[in-house]
């Protein structure tokens, strides 16, 4: 829906026309420092407010644990947003994949026990729903916003149908259920998995056709097409990847909860999108990156955690998050202000 400059890159310079060609090697530019500084500042503030509780290993583990779901989803969401589309189906896909996983692994209902194949089946559900979004979007030319809105309900519907009217399916104690919260190198496995997703996502964005073409498509679909990029096919792939990520997050969420729940993804959609935006990925497409989203996720997670620790009333917590979001975007876009800038 936004096809003009909506760049929100913190401290990202406007293209300086008179500059001589820059030396490349963009991976370690200072551009990302803005978000990182904000994150550090946030941590500093909350540490000052809660000296005894915020910077403890236990609390940091909690933050990392809470960051893991939005980080995994953020990989897919960033890729979709880089192409200039959006994926709202996250919570539905999480629910459908989570329920599929729980019902196909050993559970208290005893519906089935396919062992590791349950994970495969759950991911397949995510891939299928991603493909549904992608196909309707690219073939029927329905805006991604509304397609994925529909798929959100479809996913929830699948989860609800799977849940049926029987008792809650529980995962047995121990075994795989304990995996996400088990610590490896002092860090929860759930976060390590998320970190692996982020690294893989960064690799995809930098070194594969899929990632590079996502950037290209986000810059201009017309030009990409003219350059021979099979735009529709790669958009479809991107939605499939997003579905995969959402499904993985759904499985992880089900494992963490230890039970099947259709609403296992509740609240993650807007959190993730806000993180993508705060990280500096442009909703217009073409600008931004997965690492930025990761920083954005950590910022929001630390913020939510810090607000709770600081005893901020739950009634106004959403206002604080909202204000931070607006302020972050305002600060990031202020240098780009111009009479001619079009924001949508």
């Amino acid at each position: 829906m936004t096809d003009k400059d909506t760049g929100t890159g913190l401290l990202e310079q406007a293209p300086a026309p008179s500059q001589p060609p820059l030396r490349a090697g963009r991976r370690f530019e200072f551009k990302n420092l803005g978000e990182v500084l904000a994150l550090v500042g946030l941590i500093a503030v909350f540490t000052a407010l809660n000296p005894a509780t915020f910077l403890t290993p236990e609390n940091l583990r909690t933050i990392l644990d809470h960051a893991s779901l939005p980080l995994i989803i953020g990989v897919g969401a960033t890729l979709v947003i880089l192409t200039g589309s959006i994926d709202l189906s996250v919570e539905g896909v999480m629910g459908a994949a989570g329920m599929t996983f729980v019902l196909m692994t050993a559970n208290s209902r005893g519906s089935a026990d396919l062992g590791p194949w349950a994970i495969v089946a759950a991911l397949a559900v995510g891939v299928g729903l991603g493909m549904l979004s992608g196909l309707v979007h690219t073939r029927l030319k329905v805006p991604s916003f509304i397609v994925t809105l529909g798929v959100w309900f479809v996913g929830l519907g699948i989860a609800t149908v799977l849940f049926g009217d029987q008792s809650i399916p529980f995962l047995p104690d121990g075994g795989i259920k304990a995996w996400p919260s088990t610590l490896t190198f002092g860090v929860p496995n759930a976060f390590l998995l998320a970190a692996a997703f982020v690294l893989a996502g960064m690799f995809v964005a930098r070194f594969t056709r899929l990632g590079r073409f996502a950037y290209a498509i986000g810059d201009s679909e017309e030009i990409s097409k003219g350059n021979g990029i099979p735009v529709l096919r790669y958009k479809l792939y991107v939605f499939v990847v997003a579905g995969f990520c959402s499904a993985a997050a759904g499985v992880l969420a089900a494992l963490e909860l230890g039970a099947g729940s259709a609403t296992v993804g509740v609240g993650t959609l807007f959190l993730t999108i806000a993180a993508v935006v705060i990280g500096g990925t442009s909703l217009g497409g073409g600008k931004g990156g997965i690492l930025r989203t990761a920083v954005g996720v950590l910022m929001l997670t630390a913020l939510n955690n810090g607000l709770i620790l600081s005893g901020v009333s739950p009634n106004i917590q959403s206002a604080v998050s909202g204000t931070v979001l607006i302020a972050a975007v305002l600060v990031a876009t202020w240098p780009h202000r111009s009479r001619l800038r079009i924001v949508k």
Binding site: R61, H66, S261, G267, N305, I308
Partner: peptide, 16 residues
């Protein structure tokens, strides 16, 4: 919500 119950409890455990 069970999922939010989980998250909020984690936050509270970290806090206290």
């Amino acid at each position: 919500d069970p999922q939010l119950g989980l998250k909020e409890t984690q936050n509270l455990l970290a806090k206290y």
